[in-house]
Simulated scan of single mutants.
Amino acid sequence: MLICPGARLAIDMLDEDVAAKSPAFERLLVQQALGLVDTFPGNDIDRAADVLLGIVSKDPQAKALVDRRIEQALAAQKRQALVAIRMLGTWADGVGATPAAARQRISRLAAEVRDDLKVGAARLAGLHRGLSSFATTPPPAAVRDPGKAITEFMRGTGYGADDTARAKRIFADLGRRSQEPSELADPDAQEKLVAVLDGLPAKDWPAGSAVYDQLVHWSERRPVATPEIEAWG
């Protein structure tokens, strides 16, 4: 999982119609924007899906690119599948050919989604009418505090006490959103945190998404790196 600044920039450019007069360039931006499928099914996916809908509705080649990436994500049966499901849910709430196709795809998905993804999918069900088929009775347990959910996952998957303690400090620093230098300026810390987020169970995507959003905010601030930061472990 990457912060994907290029993907977010591509969505901004598509939203501003920067490439409206150049279909080939527009498709390149679409391909770049699809990097968001490798992140988390957070709120930014709704905006990306809305922007992409405007493109795929008028360009069959761009639609083929998007459809192929969504099917790849669904077939992987990992967190990326939840991102694809959220995109389909955003489209399904609309009108037109693409939203109708999204509703048809969703109707088949309920039987295809693997058991370990069902809780994560159920958390999406309340966000879009078109995803109501993923709702469960009873509903999923309340979303846990991101820091607690992630550090609990770390303790249960072999991370040492030092790594877990350092992760807690980073979460606290991200949460403050201060301008002060952060331990996250260490590339090794960044790599390990990304690995932790990538390993989270799909049901805990809200926790991963919350930290991912903070990482995006941090990356846009570009804090100054400090040279003497100890590595995890």
Rank of each mutant, 00 (worst) to 15 (best):
E71V: 14
E71S: 10
E71D: 15
Q72R: 06
A73C: 06
L74T: 05
A75G: 08
Q77P: 06
K78Y: 02
K78H: 12
Q80Y: 02
Q80W: 05
A81T: 04
L82G: 04
V83A: 00
V83D: 02
A84I: 01
R86K: 13
M87F: 07
L88A: 07
L88G: 01
G89T: 00
G89C: 06
G89Y: 02
T90I: 01
T90N: 01
T90D: 00
W91T: 03
V95S: 09
V95G: 05
G96Y: 01
T98P: 00
T98E: 08
T98F: 03
T98K: 05
T98L: 08
A101G: 03
A102K: 03
A102L: 10
A102N: 05
Q104K: 13
R105C: 08
I106G: 01
I106L: 14
S107Q: 10
A111S: 13
V113R: 01
D115A: 13
D115C: 01
D116K: 08
D116H: 12
L117W: 03
K118F: 02
K118G: 03
A121L: 04
A121I: 02
R123S: 05
L124K: 07
A125C: 06
R129V: 06
R129I: 08
G130V: 05
S132R: 14
S132W: 11
S133K: 05
F134G: 01
A135C: 09
A135L: 04
A135W: 00
A135R: 04
T136W: 05
A141W: 07
A141P: 09
A142S: 14
R144K: 15
D145S: 14
P146H: 13
P146I: 10
A149D: 00
I150R: 02
I150N: 00
T151L: 07
F153M: 03
F153C: 07
F153W: 15
M154L: 08
R155F: 10
R155K: 13
R155W: 05
G156C: 11
T157N: 15
T157A: 04
G158L: 12
G158I: 10
G158R: 08
Y159V: 00
A161T: 13
D163F: 11
D163M: 04
T164H: 06
A165E: 14
F171R: 01
F171V: 04
A172L: 14
L174K: 05
G175V: 11
Q179F: 15
E180L: 15
E180G: 07
P181C: 06
S182F: 02
E183H: 06
E183S: 11
L184R: 03
L184W: 07
P187C: 13
D188I: 14
